[in-house]
Amino acid sequence: MQIAVKNISKDFGKKRSTVHAIKDISLKVEHGEFMGIMGPSGAGKTTLLNMISTNERPDHGQVIIDGLDITQMHDREQAKYRRNKMGFIYQSFELLDSLNVKENVILPLALNRSNKKLIEERFNYMMQLLNIEKLSKRAIDELSLGQRQIVAAARALINSPEILFADEPTGSLDSKSATILLNYMQMINKKEKTTILMATHDAFTASYCSRVVFIKDGVVFSEIVNPGNRDKFFEQIINMQRTIGGGDYFNVSKNY
């Protein structure tokens, strides 16, 4: 087991208007697992992901990664841990507009002051792996949305993170670009043995996972394990969505 989340909770807002985003959630993630977190908007998916990835601190509970309680770490240590062990892909890409593609991709290595040779080697490897060699000198605003997300994925993976966090990675992409990205993520999960935690509300995206945890109103509602057949898994996810949302919660009709 790589990640153990123990009874974490998080509230937002002031006294009268407090929102309980996460209520006492516990879950475990195995090494090399591709886990999806699903739920309707406002269910707490992003908050949960942010807490596991140290971008937010829980009000209560623990997050233990590789035996280390990261909630007890100082901000600076958390940032270091995040930089060395984790990679991030966001719906809004979070690329730095002032840097070109190459600079964006090598950013995590440059921040770690890795040597120039290693930077070049890893960069070339990632460009080849994700098939985006031609983009390396382009500016960010010259890329399509799909290309931007692949570049964001390259940046997330360049320092071989042990855990990859993806928050709605296909949210801004068309279905073709989304499929390409998800295939890459699956390939990386298998080839590099990278643990992936992905928050999504899209059943098709979630069907690439090995396991999907459903949360609703800040608590774990249910979870489904991929039986090995993606179509069947997709159907199970749709059914669970119907159960949670009473049929139309995720824009899926009862007669699907």
């Binding site: 940032a79 995040r82 690329l95």
Partner: peptide, 11 residues
């Protein structure tokens, strides 16, 4: 964004 991808606050 820098903060999100793990740049320390001091940096």
């Amino acid at each position: 964004t820098l903060q999100k991808i793990g740049v320390e606050e001091t940096e």
